[in-house]
């Protein structure tokens, strides 16, 4: 800090030097973070031969835009999307993640609302059980879950088949191994602990008078929840939904263990398998295009919801 009235004197030079050094460092780091990303994007528009010839060079479609030069780009993405099934993986990710998100947000806010707003016997025990989940690594659950999945499928069949028959849906068999339904149930169950933990403290902060007012107006508990509390809880729910979206979209280990057929794979699984298989190792155009397809959705969400997303991803840490 320069003393008031004193302009930039010689005494300032260490501070200015430090300032410049800091600027230089921050900028260098900025390049290190951003450049590899740009590199992946623009390289996905080059043929493998072009990549070999000049690995850093910009693709022709950027230096000389035109239909002919866009051809490698189109070919790489077409090859990734249909030839290597990334279109299928993309749709699979979309199905698994969106159904899981709806499930975890709905079940999580139901449990959190009850735990935050009602007094009843066993409430602390239930809350404590959810808290335990924060400390359980997925690795601990993975193996027993894998070997119990067939029993659980049978159990669910027993549980749901009568209802399905009653509803005229015919004979229902639930199989959890190598199915999206199985993975979705795991994703929901595993995301519940953190979701319930965060939303419970969020629902506690909402004013209680609203519920009483709605009750006087004759609304039942269910109506109060769906038409008063859920809308009020939207900021917290959106934050936790974004947090879960990122975690689930990028999840790899559960998928690796529970999905085996290619047509069911999610994006991280598809990406890992082409990057591990020798036959694709030299088709760089394809690899770069596949990488872009996998990264694009979360990057897009980040660009659109940037503030909310950073809040979402750090929410637990600041509360805890």
């Amino acid at each position: 800090m320069a003393p008031a009235g004193g302009s930039r004197t010689r005494a300032d030079w260490p501070a200015r030097l430090a300032g410049s050094a800091r600027w230089l460092f921050l900028t260098a780091y900025l390049v290190a973070v951003v450049f590899p990303m740009c590199w992946v994007f623009y390289t996905s528009a080059k043929t493998t031969q072009q990549i070999y010839k000049s690995p850093f060079g910009l693709p022709k479609v950027i230096t000389a835009p035109g239909r002919a030069n866009a051809e490698p780009l189109v070919r790489n993405y077409r090859k990734a999307w249909t030839g290597s099934h990334f279109g299928q993986y993309f749709v699979n990710s979309l199905i698994v993640v969106s159904v899981s998100l709806v499930g975890v947000v709905l079940l999580g806010s139901m449990a959190a609302y009850v735990l935050a707003r009602f007094e009843f016997r066993g409430r602390n025990a239930a809350y404590f059980l959810f808290l335990c989940g924060l400390l359980i690594p997925m690795q601990l659950v993975l193996i027993p879950l894998f070997f119990q999945f067939s029993d659980m499928g049978e159990g669910l069949t027993h549980l749901l088949a009568p209802a399905a028959r009653a509803m005229g849906l015919g004979n229902l068999t639930v199989s959890l191994h190598d199915s999206h339904a199985g993975l979705i149930l795991i994703y929901i169950a595993f995301s519940l602990a953190f979701t319930v933990f965060t939303l419970t403290s969020f629902f506690r902060t909402l004013p209680g008078e609203l519920r009483e007012a709605a009750m006087i107006d004759g609304a039942g508990e269910y109506r109060i929840f769906f038409s008063v509390m859920m809308p009020l809880g939207k900021p917290g729910i959106v934050t936790i939904a974004i947090f879960n979206f990122l975690g689930l979209w990028n999840e790899y280990l559960f998928g690796l263990v529970f999905l085996s057929s290619d047509k069911l794979k999610t994006l991280p699984l598809g990406l890992a398998s082409i990057s591990m298989q020798a036959q694709y190792k030299s088709d760089f155009g394809l690899l770069f295009a596949a990488l872009v397809i996998s990264m694009a959705p979360t990057i897009l969400v980040y660009i659109i919801l940037q503030e909310k997303l950073t809040r979402g991803i750090t929410v637990g840490a600041l509360k805890g």
Partner: peptide, 8 residues
């Protein structure tokens, strides 16, 4: 980079 999956 934090929004990109570990595999990517």
């Amino acid at each position: 980079p934090n929004v990109i999956s570990g595999v990517a």
